[in-house]
Design a protein around this nucleic acid. Sequence first.
DNA 1: TTAATATTTGGCACGCGTTCTATATTATTA
DNA 2: TAATAATATAGAACGCGTGCCAAATATTAA
Lengths: 198, 198
Amino acid sequence: MARTAGRPTRSKAEIQEFRSKIGKHALEIYRLEGFGAVSMRRLAKEVGCAPMTIYAHFEGKTDILRFLWADVLGDMSNDIEKKLKSVVGARERLRAAAQTFVDYWIDHPDHFRLVFMSNNVTRADVSTFIMDEDTLAHFLMFSGLIQQVLPDELENKVRTDTLISGMIGIALCTNTIPDYPWADGTSMTEQLLSSIIA
Amino acid sequence: MARTAGRPTRSKAEIQEFRSKIGKHALEIYRLEGFGAVSMRRLAKEVGCAPMTIYAHFEGKTDILRFLWADVLGDMSNDIEKKLKSVVGARERLRAAAQTFVDYWIDHPDHFRLVFMSNNVTRADVSTFIMDEDTLAHFLMFSGLIQQVLPDELENKVRTDTLISGMIGIALCTNTIPDYPWADGTSMTEQLLSSIIA
DNA sequence: TTAATATTTGGCACGCGTTCTATATTATTA
DNA sequence: TAATAATATAGAACGCGTGCCAAATATTAA
């Protein structure tokens, strides 16, 4: 305990505040000028601090991207919720959600790249994605929808995870390997669904 | 026709030779020191030419990565072929191939990143992947395996593409979103397969 | 040989992520 | 107020991908 002299450590609140300020500006730049414009130097200039200060609050650029991910995932989630408002029936709701999910990423390749392909080449061992509670909720929604279709099924986790990763895979392939004549996203999603709600 | 004076354009063979020389060195650096070590400047030094000369033969770095992709895909393909030697029965062969495919990418995260996540941030519109015939063959192998299981099925293309993109999706998620407790790759692959050979 | 053309080269430049170092500023306790 | 510890800052540096440009070099037809 016994505090010695000197400036005290930043409080949690202060750290949080600074981080979200950076995040806010990152989002602003991203929305206005795209991902390419979001740079550490630019961000520092925008927020009015030295570039080095940012590194005192963030591990690196990847750490900042989380704010953009949250934004994009929220956007996608909105699409699905909007769609689901007019859809009834457990099977149809799952179907609609899955199709909207896949459509979103195919219609927004830049968003897909931002969320799923921000590679930190320098350290391959460190993972790109950090799941927070909000992000998690967007994925677990599918678990609920599947539960509606198959209430008694025990392996809902495997089903949910397979569906999610499968959908992301469809989006990935369509986005990054256009030279291969993929079947259209709708058909593939339908095929994928048939394994989940067989 | 009527050739005027002056140095003639590089022949196709010369271009090809230089390109493969660069590719060879890129592979060497990659295998010895990893992807991070493969840079344009380094490559030029290694091959003994000016950095700009490379740009006369390649569109950019992404254009060079194709050589690394081919290498990795060949490696993966070997794994599958080796595995298939001891497996009989159409269903089991498809199953084994799929599992080996997924396992490969999960066991080699760096290779996965190299092949499926080399993002060119600058131009989001330009695709990452370029399919050549060899690459194509690695993917179409699954089409053949599925045909063995379901000879009369018309929608083999949708089935093949869904399987491939689904498997890649499983690998992507496992590799890049480790904070989420994904079901294990084997289970998800099995679940995915159930839609293909239902 | 000379003239013409293709290619290669070196050098400079920009902005990038990131790290390092030294210095300044700030907020606290003694 | 003075000492102290945390933080912020400026500035340089490294290597990166990538463009631009003028000069050098290579290879051909006349």
